[in-house]
């Protein structure tokens, strides 16, 4: 178990290194260098060389990378050329919004998909299963931005249950914060519900055919006990693996929803920065998102190892 974890940690470090190199190169590979942005109309060859020297961009790439990586490790991601704002600070403002959005939407998704799948799998292809299957498929096929608009129209504009746009931070007012996060979370959760329901349902159905379920029945255990204590755990692996990937992609993929609800999250900021060619901003945010993605998936792998003792030997 420990050696498995150690191996995975080494892997994790390697992946993070590769990500950091890519994030670093990302900006250098883009056309147009930052001096153009900074100088604007005052662009002269000497001024440009001076800027590049000041920024350290005249040094060889490996050296630039080491300087940059060293700063990153100290929490210094640089300052935006445009807003002069610290990148780390911007991320610290934006990232919690995404985190909250992802957590709330995933809690809703699991809270709905889990019981639906447990009930549906007991009688596959009967009325309840078909109804749940159709309903979730419907959710899956509605794009988040359409669902967002519908939700905003009905729940915000018509009945004023939630604010239509804007964000209140958790520290300002926890209640307002939750209210401002509910609609975007609902818009994001639809696809997750459908995917989680389908994965868990089909895995449960095949698990319930296993010999060890018949064996559990032969002990005289109740259906509910067998479902929760014998069938759920071995049926949850593909659900968890897909949740890991899904959560990772929601961190950036929430952009459209953030835009519609005017939430200044990471996805929103990245797009703003890309169009403004704010290269340090893009770099820092891409790095944070990628590392978060890797960490989430590592956590999921770890959870699966905890749940499935057979993997620990590998």
């Amino acid at each position: 178990m420990l050696s498995y974890l150690a191996k995975r940690l080494v892997q994790l470090a390697a992946v993070v290194f590769v990500i950091s190199v890519l994030a670093f190169l990302l900006v250098h590979l883009l056309p147009g260098d930052p001096s153009v942005t900074i100088l604007g109309p005052f662009d002269t060859p000497t001024a440009r060389a001076e800027i590049l020297r000041q920024l350290g961009l005249d040094k060889p790439l490996p050296q630039q990378y080491l300087t940059w990586a060293g700063n990153v490790l100290h929490g210094n991601l640089g300052r935006s050329f445009l807003t002069k704002q610290s990148v780390a600070h911007a991320i610290a403002e934006a990232f919690p919004i995404d985190l909250e959005l992802v957590i709330v939407s995933q809690v809703i998704a699991f809270a709905l998909a889990l019981p639906l799948a447990l009930v549906a799998s007991r009688r596959p292809n009967r009325a309840f299963d078909r109804l749940a299957g159709t309903a979730t498929f419907g959710l899956l096929s509605i794009p988040a931005f359409i669902l967002a608009v519908i939700l905003a129209l009905v729940l915000a504009v018509e009945i004023h249950a939630f604010p239509a746009t804007g964000f209140t931070s958790l520290t300002t007012s926890p209640v307002q914060n939750l209210r401002s996060i509910v609609l975007p979370s609902l818009a994001l959760t639809a696809g997750s519900i459908a995917v989680y329901f389908r994965l868990l349902r089909s895995d449960l159905i095949s698990t319930l055919q296993e010999d060890y379920i018949t064996m559990a029945r032969s002990k005289g255990l109740s259906d509910r006990y067998i479902l929760l204590r014998h069938a759920l755990r071995p049926s949850s692996f593909s659900l968890l693996a897909s949740a890991g990937i899904n959560i990772g992609s929601l961190l950036t993929g929430a952009f459209v929803v953030e835009y519609l609800f005017q939430l200044p999250g990471i996805g929103y900021q990245i797009v703003e920065s890309i169009s403004a060619r704010d290269y340090l901003m893009v770099q820092g945010m891409a790095l944070v998102v990628a590392v978060a993605y890797v960490v989430v998936n590592f956590a999921v792998d770890f959870l699966i190892v905890l749940l499935d003792p057979r993997i620990r030997r590998a």
Partner: peptide, 24 residues
Amino acid sequence: LRRVWGTEMAMVFQDPMTALNPVV
């Protein structure tokens, strides 16, 4: 039947690899 299963009649299955729950 469940009241009889396990306590009055019990079954030994053919393949213990598949009849024991692998994650319990």
